[in-house]
Amino acid sequence: MKAPIFIYKRPASLDEALALLVDNDGGTQVLAGGQSLLATLNMRLSSPAILVDINRITVLQGIEARDDGIRLGALVRHREVLTSPLVARDVPLLAMALPYVAHMAVRNRGTTCGSLALADPSAEMPAVAVALNARIVLEKKGARRSVTARDFFQGLYQTARDDDEMITEVIFPKADADEAFGFTELSRRHGDFATVGLAIRARKAGGALNDLDVIIFGSEPCPLHSPAAAGISIASNASDKDLTEIAATITADMEPMDNHQGRGETKRAQAATLLRRTLKDMQQRALALEAAQP
């Protein structure tokens, strides 16, 4: 199928772009990497009246270290994030998640902020943003606000962004030395969207993991930040049985959706397995790191 007719705008500045978004109820859409938007246009699943191509707006480019964290502009492509030494060092969870995102050609064009804006329930970036509670910066003509990722994602393809707002950047907090991270997902084939996945952050003390943030995604309408996980500490010598119990407690928070990837209950069981294994892996990595330290 071929895309329906639309008006194409390619503003050179952010102000122009924001002006184009004024007074719009979804009929005007931002075109970032186009790796989702153009696919839906080619299927005539969406028919925006106006496309605002932001690819010329240079202020939206770049990965930068700032006091408050690592900033990714709206034009930062998945590939840039995947290959950034800055990201690898300061936001390791993001680096761990990116290999799961699509394939090389799609990563060369698709953007992190586009992924956040789209809020696909099976996408990796929203889960990472929620795990780290990244700050998402929304701008509209004459106003700028920032929303934490935990407030941003509100439901299936639903976010706190208003139609006249653009995500101009996202800021990921830098990892502390005592933080540990885990990322995994189950998908049918590599590069596919996740059936169910996990993004985890914790504070480590030896092999113990405390202050857990467990995000479950893919199975839920939007990334689920497990309330149960918050109160859990994992002892250094936790047995498989302990981990199994912890995983069961945390995945009890899920409200998994039934779809072609499986029934919700199947995903809950799969998530519990992934969680047990990932927690164990995080513990082992923490211990190995400690052992390697002089």
Binding site: Y8, L38, A39, M104, A105
Partner: peptide, 27 residues
Amino acid sequence: CEHGVCGACNILVDGRSMRSCLMLAVQ
């Protein structure tokens, strides 16, 4: 496919492989 999945349309844009079905010519 025209929805970015098959890669039959991959070409190089500024030296990198990209889906030519997921870019507009005007871009």
